[in-house]
Amino acid sequence: MSMPEGRMDEQTIAMRVAREFQDGMIVNLGGGIPSLACNFVAEGREVFFHTENGALGYGGTASLEEADWDLFNASFQPVTPLPGMSFFSHDEAFAMIRGGHIDISVLGAFEVSEKGDLANWAIGNMKDYNGDVVAWIKTGRFPPAIGGAMDLAAGAKRIIVAMTHTTRDGSPKVVKKCKYEITARKCVSLIVTDMAVIEVTSEGLVLKEVAPGLTPDDIQAVTEPKLIVADDLKEVEL
């Protein structure tokens, strides 16, 4: 597998995330990189994917031939049916989330803080618009949309963030304090990026795995808070 500049591609990040899915778990996948993880469930494990628009136990991403308007995930992607799947209303889907019935929620992020605060619903801060959401949306610049992110971040048992380690211009996305609008505080437990796997602990951020060819110093150079290097640090395992 080729990994230019020591960075893993989106599929590989999703593959690493999917290793966290244990047999029998209920997992919700957010849009973007997280949505790819449904295609990488480990052999021999049965994982039940939940989607906000009302399905449990769907399969992978559907091909054009398989695609059906009545079987979509919450990222507006067609998915495949699986034996044993079920459908339910939107309020039921969120009773499952709010009620703590989701084992893992995988979410994308714009920023994650060293305390595990998550910012993933708005590229910006309402203060820049004097608290006026209409003024913000009127600009057309990254109009904010909450979607299901706040409910998932507040309700799921475990939050895993899957994202690129830096922004396109190279700025860190793992930061001391989020500058964008917060989704939920102290909610993230694991961060999987194209460069590293980082665990959020009460002592701080622990660097657990690095992408092949990278050193802890490479990761620290593009990470704002100080990382604690795990004693058993290893290369990302897929």
Binding site: E52, H90, D91, A93, F94, A95, I97, R98, V133, P144, A145, I146, G147, G148, A149, M150, D151, G155
Partner: peptide, 9 residues
């Protein structure tokens, strides 16, 4: 703006 689950509930 309302979170999706809060809107449903």
């Amino acid at each position: 703006l309302v979170p999706q689950g809060t809107l449903a509930e």
